[in-house]
Design a binder for these strands. Structure first.
Lengths: 351, 351
DNA sequence: ACGGTTTTGAGGCACGTGCATCAAAATTTT
DNA sequence: AAAATTTTGATGCACGTGCCTCAAAACCGT
């Protein structure tokens, strides 16, 4: 029974290992053995110490421990090379966060990888050892190789965190939004923003091979079909990041379907498809919804060519990932602090 | 000799005050004098040390410094007594955060106050000294007394942070959302969700004396008038937190205005007005938008009696405030880490 | 050159924890 | 009971910084 977790008077000092030793009736050396899980301590003695921990409400001073070990945290963000604007924002915030976290002895670095070469990613992860690095945040499509590499990494004692776009239902560990819910949100806004009695919705992605797009599409269709049966969703168009291809498939689709009343751009890089749509002769009152805030989408929102933006704040993402990695590499046991990334909805009036 | 801010190899240690002393060609005592701004150092010597700091990219190890000073942070949340559900959530998260931040030597406490007694608040703030407490987050209506008390507190070296609802345009320091933008967002959603060719919107607040409500109303009207001229906003109804009064004014308003197509509940406690509306015989397809996620509003969103919720995540608010206070009390000079709280839009599909 | 003042250096202890060593005590095995 | 083994205690250094004291050095005005 802990009397109180918190000092009732300001000057009440926090219990130290010395206090633990005194209360448990053992030496500081033994307290140390228990706290750090070393061998050769009678279970009876362990119990005495843990009882004292509970009684005093002892919390290990991590700063002091890190100082003693001269430990500093080194985290690596494994990110795709491809430089779309969203990724640029992420990079910028990683460097910014690097400076902020420096005084906490946290280093954050970026390792660019070819996101479509699972072997290369796996090889990189395999090259990391606990001595070199304390945690990795990985933004890459889910593949069996990657999944295995992450598991092995965790087994070697380096924590790995899916970042933004990755591994399906690593769920509670992912730093990023629930893409299915994001798709649902887009659909609800789309359905309610569209006043036409019926019509079709154009759906554009960079590639439907990425899990993100699949999940968004899933959520989107689910809500449109269930709640807005007067609307039809067209098959996903894929740009593969190419402007020419985007031009081709989008114009083809708009000519084939005269009743388009909405456009949903699922990929994080909305610039290419939106520029193409700009040039296409679609009716003005079309509702368009895209993802991620970038200089381009922000501007598009302002001038009305986009009606809503589903976003995740890059700064929050980065800082949250860093804090999560720190928590993970500190207490392998305690539950991670619940830092759920929320889906933000941006419209012209709250950017 | 190390030019880079960041270690290129993992084992490159961070420069310490000892390194600074060596490079600057002075003693560690002098480095200490410069670092901590003590008097009696020739400006020439100061320059030598700051040059070394720049050259090495020295960053003070705050953990070690705090350890040496046996400093721990003590922050106080000054919150209204009144226990609405939103406040309950805030309280819960403060206690939760207290445990998480304990290992970083951060204590967070709550001081309940009567939010409508500026004198009492000012007196409490005046009773605080830098020795007792390192920072205060204050949630209370703006008054001249409070503003003065906060200024004086800051002068005494205790940082004060407006929390959620407070001081007008302390702007960049406020932990909370921009209420004007929140009102605008509500209006945009309202305007686009309403399909009726014309109609009136009911606006309900707890009290229009609070700055929050005023700003939300301002933003709301601005957007409705500008972008949705076919809609009319009715004068704000005030409940003063009383169920009877809410019942009276709301039923009166609904009888007086037959063309109500939307309801906007501005106050953070949406339960009372919504329960009244539930009993009122309004047409089913009315669009209703409220603020803050509570067990009640969450449920209302699920069962469709609310169409959208403008929220700020209580957990984020609390943790952000704590981190902000820590940053403030650490470096009185450096720019605070940019932790802007975003306006979240919740609809049935992304709760 | 003198005394006085300002500036600097040297050294040491403290903070709370990790880690190492060696001896002492307790327990088990022979 | 002696020997072997396990468990515990005592002690000390280290981490990086703050803060203290005292003396040495550099500078000042006369």
């Amino acid at each position: 029974m802990q009397k109180s977790l918190r000092p009732s008077t300001p000057n009440m000092a926090r219990p130290t290992t010395k206090d633990l030793a005194r209360v448990a009736g053992v030496s500081r050396a033994t307290v140390d053995r228990v706290l750090n899980g070393r061998e050769g301590v009678k279970s009876e003695t362990v119990e005495k110490v843990t009882a004292a921990i509970r009684e005093l409400g002892f919390v290990r001073n991590i700063s002091a421990a890190n100082l003693a070990k001269s430990k500093s945290y080194r985290f690596i963000f494994v990110l795709p090379r491809s430089g779309d604007q969203f990724l640029d924002e992420i990079l910028r915030h990683i460097h910014e966060a690097g400076e902020v976290f420096a005084s906490d002895m946290i280093w954050a670095e970026v390792q660019p990888i070819d996101e479509n070469d699972p072997h290369q990613i796996a090889a990189f992860l395999a090259s990391l050892s606990p001595g070199d690095v304390d945690g990795v945040a990985i933004m890459a499509p889910e593949t069996p190789q990657l999944r295995d590499a992450m598991t092995r990494l965790a087994e070697r004692g380096v924590c790995a965190l899916p970042f933004i776009s990755n591994q399906a239902l690593s769920g509670d560990n992912l730093v990023g939004i629930d893409n299915r819910a994001a798709g649902k949100t887009a659909a609800t806004l789309m359905g309610r923003f569209i006043h036409a009695p019926r019509g079709q919705i154009l759906v554009i992605a960079e590639s439907m091979q990425s899990r993100d797009s699949l999940e968004r599409r899933l959520g989107f269709d689910q809500v449109i079909n269930h709640s807005f049966p007067h609307l039809t969703t067209l098959p996903s168009l894929e740009t593969y990041g190419s402007a020419e291809r985007a031009e081709r498939v989008i114009t083809a689709a708009t000519q084939r379907n005269p009743d388009i009343v909405g456009v949903y751009v699922m990929s994080s890089e909305a610039r290419i498809p939106l520029e193409v749509l700009e040039r296409t002769d679609l009716p003005q009152q079309i509702v368009s919804i895209a993802h991620e805030r970038t200089p381009f989408t922000e501007n598009a929102l302002r001038n009305g060519s986009i009606d809503a933006l589903i976003t995740q704040d890059p700064g929050h993402l980065v800082r949250s990932a860093i804090r999560r990695l720190r928590a993970l590499s500190d207490n392998l046991t305690t539950s991670t602090s619940q830092e759920k990334i929320r889906i933000e909805v941006l419209i012209a009036t709250n950017i």
